[in-house]
């Protein structure tokens, strides 16, 4: 267990170093940061002083070292655009994205897994085919079209749900949550569905195909031949075996949801990290982009680590080495 986890940790550190190098390279290659920061009328001498102050004249290696150690100590630097510390900006935005991500993930799991099981077991049923065709339509339409359609239907025509923003938020320390008020929850519904529908389809289809594969294996046939009741065969024997690959994909998807909620956030004007990133791109706010890149990589790495540990919990073949010889 220890060796397994430490091996994964070392791999993760390499990934993070690579990503931070890429993020750092952005500063070097996307124009002169001083020119972006200062106005036209700043004198050359002032510019030089600023350059010296910010350490931009130091050797590249030294600058990279400083960049990494700053990241490690939580010194993310300042945004070019708003002049605010990036750490604060992200902390303010992160809860919105994380909550949106979690809710959409829950939606995709709560609907996707049972639907996957159902369609695997009743392959030819009318309901199965309907579900499969509907979700196929769902997966083929781009996210922003679905978002706009939902806004039109539930926000504009029916007027049931708010169409933008987070509604009411409750502050728990620095964490602003939408979970504790009706208004907040209402505001969460449409963006979460929009973001979750793709994962839902993916989860469902994956569960379905994995389940169908497992149902054709010898050990399921053997269980049937032993007269084990079908309930246990389906939910105890087959489902657990189907979950191993499903967990990997769900993990990666969750990373993707956090990282690429950009489209959904901009359609619903959701004040999360995605929207921040979009604005940063618009204003060539390189420090924010660089930190965002590193943070997202960290999210992926952490999720992957969790997925690996889950393997460990689920699959005895990873946990226990076979007997020698």
């Amino acid at each position: 267990m220890f060796a397994y986890v430490s091996r994964r940790l070392i791999q993760s550190i390499f990934v993070m170093l690579t990503v931070s190098l890429l993020a750092f390279a952005m500063f070097r290659f996307v124009g002169d940061p001083i020119a972006v920061m200062v106005g036209q009328e700043t004198s050359i001498e002032d510019q030089e002083r600023l350059r010296e102050q910010l350490g931009l004249n130091d050797p590249v290696i030294q600058q990279y070292g400083r960049f990494v150690s700053n990241l490690l100590t939580g010194e993310f630097g300042f945004s070019y655009r708003t002049r605010q510390p990036i750490g604060e900006m992200l902390l303010e935005r992160a809860p919105a994205t994380i909550e949106l991500g979690i809710v959409s993930l829950l939606i995709s799991l709560i609907v996707g897994i049972p639907a996957g099981i159902y369609t695997a077991l009743r392959n030819d049923g009318f309901l199965s085919q309907t579900i499969l065709i509907t979700t196929l339509v769902g997966i083929s339409i781009p996210t922003f079209v679905i978002g706009i359609f939902l806004i039109y239907l539930f926000g504009v025509q029916l007027g049931w749900l708010p169409t933008f923003g987070r509604g009411e938020v409750t502050e728990i320390g620095w964490w602003k949550s939408s979970f504790f008020s009706i208004k907040g929850l209402e505001a969460l519904i449409l963006p979460a569905i929009t973001l979750g529908i793709y994962q839902l389809t993916l989860t469902m289809r994956l569960v379905r195909s994995e389940m169908q594969d497992v149902l054709n294996t010898d050990f399921i046939k053997f269980a049937v031949a032993r007269g084990i009741n079908y309930r246990s065969i389906h939910y105890h024997h087959a489902l657990r075996n189907s979950m191993v690959p499903v967990i990997t994909i769900i993990g990666l998807q969750f990373g993707g949801v956090i990282a690429f909620s950009i489209v959904t956030e901009s359609v619903f004007q959701w004040p999360g990290m995605g929207l921040l990133f979009l604005e940063s791109i618009r204003y060539v706010d390189i420090p924010v982009m660089a930190v965002y890149l590193v943070i997202i990589a960290l999210v992926f790495v952490v999720i992957n680590l969790i997925v690996d540990m889950l393997y460990f919990a689920i699959d005895p073949r990873v946990r226990l080495q076979p007997e020698a010889g």
Partner: peptide, 15 residues
């Protein structure tokens, strides 16, 4: 009851 050909695949690996 029944016995299958390949003992590698006829037992549930997770139980």
């Amino acid at each position: 009851s029944m016995i299958f050909q390949d003992p590698q695949t006829s037992l549930n690996p997770l139980l």
